[in-house]
Simulated assay, not measured.
Amino acid sequence: MNEQGERGKYLELKDKKILITGAAGFIGYHLVSVLLQKEKSIHIIGIDNINDYYDISIKEYRLKKINEISLEYFDCSWSFLKGDISDKQFVCAVFKKYKPDIVINLAAQAGVRYSIINPDVYIESNLIGFYNILEACRNSCIDNDSVKTNEYQGVQHLIYASSSSVYGENKKVPYSTEDKVDNPVSLYAATKKTNELMAHVYSKIYNIPSTGLRFFSVYGPAGRPDMAYFKFTDQLRKGEKIQIFNYGNCKRDFTYISDAVECILRVISCPPMQTAGEDGLRAAPYAIYNIGSQKPEKLLDFMEILQKELVDAEILPKDYDFEALKEYVPMQQGDTHVTYADTTTLERDFGFRPKTNLREGVHKFVEWYKDFYKL
């Protein structure tokens, strides 16, 4: 499935209704915040189930910040609905009431390791939930297909979060969207690969322009506490042992949150265009992009930067014994040795390369962490 649609007609966002699922999540929060501040006269509908996979106080903090921003930008509107995309009746009701022009699906059960111990929630959220979104998009287009007026025309672009985990243990690096991704090493990765297949089918059959974004280790302020950099910070504060997998030989293509959001902003207005396929039939208006820094970093190097920033911020004392807390362990099931994004198509189509270096990004996270926990 290497089919990559050409970019279609530019979508003007003014007066558009944008539905964002997972709005209280890490990427969702930053995306909504930037959209409200940068775009004119848009209407954002946010959905999130506020589950307790991690500390819900962080999700409540994100929503509070969004509400504060929305009060400053009067020409835009922000509505939040607590609900689960695995609830088909709920999803249908949202689409019927709000009639979104653009849908950005960021809702998903995240976490590679958690998928090993609690697979049910991944099926419910990542598969059934995404199916419900696709069906609602399809019905919005079918209901309006015969009426070509200035009224609601159905969903004009579906953007959804995929993951670098779909590459599994691919040996070829950097990872290209042209590579085969048939060997996932976790259920989480398998659900994300399935999302891409499902989106392709709905794009092909129902002509729904869809763009999948394979995110590579997104990090930054107000991030997820289950991510390595956040967990390490918590453990160091508590004086707990830190497990460093693969004996410190892992490499990750870390992507700072503002770079990830900038990529989404550029993608939103440029849905893929339906074209003629090689078989003479129409090709799906469908595209996939890697969202990464194209610069994998050793986990140990990342740790060194994090330690320095925590000391500089006076979260940890200068004489802190980091070495005593490091525990080098084998690779954990479901993990991969390296992630490394080839962002050639992203640069070609949108002229963008992430620009935040690791030290700058970690510094901003540490500043937020200190403020959030009032240290």
Rank of each mutant, 00 (worst) to 15 (best):
A199T: 00
T211H: 05
G220S: 07
V201T: 11
K193Y: 06
F216N: 03
K204W: 00
R214L: 14
E196K: 03
N207H: 06
L213F: 08
S217E: 15
H200I: 07
N195M: 15
G220T: 05
M198S: 06
R224L: 08
R214T: 10
I205Q: 03
S210C: 10
S203K: 01
G212V: 08
F215G: 10
I208P: 02
G220M: 05
V218N: 09
Y206C: 03
G223R: 11
K193C: 09
Y219T: 12
S210Q: 06
S203A: 14
A199I: 00
H200V: 00
I205E: 07
Y206W: 12
M198P: 02
Y202M: 04
S217Q: 14
G223H: 08
G212C: 09
G223D: 14
F215Y: 15
A222P: 13
G223N: 11
K193M: 14
F216G: 10
A199C: 03
A222D: 09
R224S: 15
F215N: 09
Y202S: 05
N195Y: 04
H200P: 09
A199N: 02
V218C: 12
I205F: 01
N207R: 04
Y202C: 03
I208N: 02
L197R: 14
P209Y: 06
N207V: 04
P209R: 04
R224C: 15
V201S: 07
S203T: 02
R224Y: 07
S217D: 13
L197M: 13
H200R: 10
K204P: 00
F216I: 09
A222Q: 13
Y206P: 13
R214S: 09
K204R: 08
N207L: 04
S203H: 00
L197G: 11
S217H: 14
S203Q: 01
G212Q: 10
A222K: 12
G223P: 09
H200D: 03
F215D: 08
A199Q: 01
S210G: 03
V218Q: 11
R224H: 15
I208T: 04
I208M: 07
L213G: 08
L213C: 14
L197A: 14
G220Q: 05
Y202I: 03
S217W: 13
S210A: 15
